[in-house]
Design a protein around this nucleic acid. Structure first.
Lengths: 111, 111
DNA sequence: AAAATAGTGAAGTAATCACTTCAGTATTGT
DNA sequence: ACAATACTGAAGTGATTACTTCACTATTTT
């Protein structure tokens, strides 16, 4: 469910915005309320809530409301899925380079 | 130069589009010309060139023109920078959880 | 030399984005 | 009960995005 392309799409889209990455960064140091997330950002609370909704829809962040405060936390599984996508492509490339290197070494021996 | 926030911004922005991720995926299997990149995509060549320019500006892809064909390849260093950003945040979170676990284990012993 | 191939560049367009403001609803502290 | 806090939601706006088409330039191939 985490590797389905639609979810991946939402995740990368969510990470594309600097304000949202800053929020993820903040949350990586521990849970925070909406106002705490908003505090270092130069924008209205409303804007922050909108960003938060994008993050939550992407699965990167989950929230829980107790009384009047909504506590947000990072969802490491989702983070790992994005990481994994990039990693796989990079590895594919590097494996290819390795094979090419071997091939070149072999054909050099044949001279 | 790869970790500067502006470059990171361009990279995540570039990865946010499904067509561009498909192009990166294709390139992870080996270099390709613009037309080869375009082939599986349901859009005009012009659109593909525009996506390619975004990828190149982000540093994720580099290109080289020989004669009339432009050959594109993945830039694993850039890919790694994006990977790294995500990884750091996830690790920060997981380290935090570990410390919390230790703390809980300790205070349990004190009962 | 002519035709086919490979890509480029500019202009236009519809949709989406990242905000804003403002008005509203719970919840909590005094 | 009243005020302050912590959000929430809707509507609007200007900028950016992801395309399109069309006209064009180089480079090969025949």
């Amino acid at each position: 469910m985490l590797h389905d392309p639609a979810q991946l799409d939402l995740m990368f889209q969510a990470l594309a915005d600097p304000a949202r990455r800053q929020m993820v960064d903040r949350l990586s140091r521990g849970p925070a309320s909406v106002s705490q997330l908003a505090e270092p950002l130069a924008m209205s609370l409303s804007a922050v809530v909108q960003h938060l909704n994008v993050l939550e829809a992407s699965g990167l962040v989950s929230t829980e409301k107790l009384g009047r405060v909504r506590t947000c936390r990072i969802e490491p599984k989702a983070l790992r899925a994005a990481e994994h996508w990039i990693n796989e492509r990079r590895l594919a490339w590097e494996r290819r380079l390795d094979r090419l290197g071997e091939y070149l070494a072999e054909t050099r021996d044949e001279n």
